[in-house]
Design a protein around this nucleic acid. Structure first.
Length: 110
DNA sequence: CATTTGACTTGAA
DNA sequence: GTTCAAGCCAAAT
């Protein structure tokens, strides 16, 4: 079911992120085949807050596991949500990032 | 229709 | 190891 819209594709993948896991923009972009459009993934996320059902954008972080999106969430909301799901966050960074990392190109490749 | 921007990534100094 | 710069694609203006 390939969505004709780049945004919708990003939303779907973002919704597929399991609880307590996080992924990176580049991972989603690579999964969509547009590795170079890593920025677009985040850009789509911005609009994600306007779509329905809502997308767990708080589970999407940058390559460094840094909560880059928290600035858009409006404070510590993002970190709170992540910790609420079992993701340890400290200094705006995901702890054990590689452990909680969820790569769609691998998890969904099956 | 052309230009600018953007929740990023990777490479080089 | 850290900092700077360039590159990438798509949507918004």
């Amino acid at each position: 079911m390939a969505e004709p819209n780049f945004y919708d594709s990003v939303y779907e993948v973002a919704r597929l992120i399991p609880k307590g896991r996080v992924t990176s923009y580049g991972a989603i972009a690579a999964y969509l085949g547009t590795k170079g459009s890593s920025r677009m993934v985040g850009y789509a996320m911005q609009a994600a807050g306007r779509v329905d059902p809502p997308v767990p954008a708080h589970r999407v972080v940058n390559r460094q596991g840094l909560l880059t999106a928290k600035f858009h969430f409006g404070g510590n909301l993002m970190q709170t949500l992540l910790e609420n799901e079992g993701v340890k966050v400290a200094d705006d960074q995901v702890q054990d990032f590689k452990t909680v990392f969820w790569d769609p190109s691998i998890e969904l490749a099956l």
